[in-house]
Design a protein around this nucleic acid. Structure first.
Lengths: 357, 357
DNA sequence: TCCCTTATTGGGAGCGCTAACAATCTAGTT
DNA sequence: AACTAGATTGTTAGCGCTCCCAATAAGGGA
């Protein structure tokens, strides 16, 4: 059996329910007493059509409630006007905001967005790509799951833009936040407070954006002549608690904590509350990405503010350009600068804001 | 011009880039020296095929890397194996969790899920339905935007299940949380604490689930012989602040606040923090739905816990059944009971949990 | 008036696939 | 050996649409 789903056993001759009764081009043509081609041309805005004919055709379309059959269009090589958006996880506000923005941008240009999530399953990635291709999406926007490696030939020349995470293997455009600069700025800010032992933590460091943020952290530490501390992996509530306990013990306690992603920030905020760790008195804190409900948290969080809208819009526009201009992917790497929102958790007492280079 | 996007002006004779080079059934058939029908039969798991032929066909498929062309399948009336999921807003964790669960369930049954969001634009609803139909989704899962009224004929007989919010007009199955019972239970619990003036607040009350929750509130108040207080609309941070100020003033201050949806709960938690209102000392609080980051909030929140997974799974399974068994929609109304998570914000001091009827 | 150019319309063919039916082949029966 | 039921494979047509090319209608200059 093949690895793609099939129509199901049909017993060899069981009739499949055909979507009956739908109005076709031929129906419209007959009603308007013209050739199907004329209707087709009208639909495509071909100017070589007399106003009188156009009116007749329009009337027939409206009267019959005609809708185009995209399967037939697409079979002839026409664009489907659908782009696929594959995300690792819809429950993460970072990605759901991307979804929102991509849809906004694409919709304004006449495209539908087919959103799907891999739920961090790297094999699911490849399957989604293939099946979306089978369904003739015009292009693909990919925030690939951790570790998935997409061979170039699997993309089969379909316009693709990677977003947030690069696509190893396939040579495509890549739009991302300038994570390295953002992390560097954040750590620099913490250093200005006089903290010397600044620790970083987060999820699996294999993911590209995390690697970039680690580099940014190291940049800032080294620039200040301080040794970078090792990256602390934190995946769940239990490990956050555990880490909190070890951070403050020992002869040289950590003075500031910088989680490198939003989920981890949440984990630590929960742990701080549970362990009655006072921020920023016991420990300074700098969050990565805006946290939902952050206004209900005291002290207010200083955070890296990711330019999600700009990133999503850039990526979408680049993709649509590739689709419509049929330009080759330039393998460009577009880095969008993030900004810092300085509130109180880092040790500041008044709010102010700065923008990274 | 029609109201659906068209392929773009083609000048009458500009050649459209056909996705060249893709392996077709005929290619496989030739490579395996059989008829195309034989390959098709193999793909559909037809048992009337000799093992030797099956092997030959499989080898050819693997060697050539054949993938089915769904446009052609669908044009013949075959199922597309895609279901559409239309949600009001992906940024809301309630809906993004629905998306996650639907995908989980559908994927296990060989279906892809086409997720799209209307961003609370009621007109966008209808357009998405129509365009997904144009693309031959096998069925539709709908959490319709507020106020959208879908005429039955627009659904055109496509299997549909409404989720969370009913579909006015179209007679389809409807899977929802038993919001009325959940609200009743929550209010009853608050009443047991001795609170008599319990206020409800939330977004636009036109939305069906909100209406049900209001009814549940009124049930509980009347059962206790108390007059229900009027519903307080709250849409943003400013109005939450305003409401907080008025709640505690006057001769008969409100003792407990019960926001009827998650977003509003967040708004009030932020306002409480800003106004230094202490929960539950100044005001008891019962949240609707689990709030992200709720573990980082003191006191811990008592909340209605919505059975999102069960709801999404039920809805998906019902839809797939309609699709595969070709059963008519029973116009059934399935209510899934919610449970209460009792923590501290309601005035309790120890955690315990109860389940509504 | 005729011919030629340009605007507008029509007529097949065929995209890749599958339903229905036809054809062939096998083994079992009398 | 002739025949038949059943298993296996092939053939044809056509899903709804758009391509290519041909056909017609409309204007303009000789």
């Amino acid at each position: 059996m093949p690895d793609f789903p099939i129509g199901g056993y049909d017993g060899g001759s069981v009739s499949v329910s055909r979507p009956m009764g739908r109005v076709t081009l031929a129906d419209v043509a007959k009603a308007a007493s013209v050739a199907t081609m004329t209707v087709s041309r009208y639909l495509h805005g071909n100017p070589n059509i007399s106003p009188a004919t156009a009116r007749k055709v329009k009337a027939a379309i409206d009267r019959l409630g005609y809708r185009p059959n995209y399967a037939a269009r697409v079979l002839m090589g026409q664009p489907s006007k659908v782009i696929g958006l594959i995300l690792p996880n819809l429950a993460n506000p970072f990605f759901s905001l991307i979804a929102h923005c991509v849809q906004q941008t694409a919709h304004g240009r006449g495209y539908l967005v087919w959103i799907a999530a891999t739920n961090d399953d790297p094999t699911s990635d490849l399957e989604l790509i293939e099946r979306m291709r089978d369904h003739h999406v015009d292009g693909l926007l990919l925030a690939s799951s951790q570790g998935s490696n997409i061979p170039q030939e699997k993309m089969g020349g379909i316009p693709t833009v990677a977003i947030d995470r690069p696509l190893r293997g396939a040579g495509v455009d890549f739009v991302t936040v300038d994570d390295r600069a953002a992390a560097r700025e954040a750590v620099s800010h913490l250093l200005q407070h006089g903290y010397k032992r600044i620790a970083i933590t987060g999820i699996d460091a294999q993911i590209r954006p995390i690697q970039e943020r680690i580099l940014g952290y190291q940049d800032a530490m080294r620039a200040a002549g301080l040794p970078p501390l090792p990256y602390i992996r934190c995946d769940d509530h239990a490990s956050a608690l555990q880490i909190c306990k070890t951070l403050r013990t020992g002869k040289r306690p950590v003075e500031a904590l910088f989680p490198l992603n939003g989920d981890t920030s949440v984990l630590f905020l929960e742990a701080f509350e549970e362990l009655r760790i006072s921020i920023p008195r016991d420990l300074a804190f700098f969050s990565y990405g805006d946290i939902p409900l952050s206004r209900a948290i005291r002290p207010r969080l200083s955070a890296v503010q990711q330019p999600i809208e700009a990133m999503a819009e850039q990526a979408t526009l680049r993709l649509l350009e590739q689709i419509e201009q049929k330009t080759k992917p330039s393998r460009a790497r577009i880095k969008i600068p993030a900004s810092l929102v300085i509130r109180e958790s880092c040790g500041c007492t008044r709010s102010r804001s700065s923008r990274t280079s």
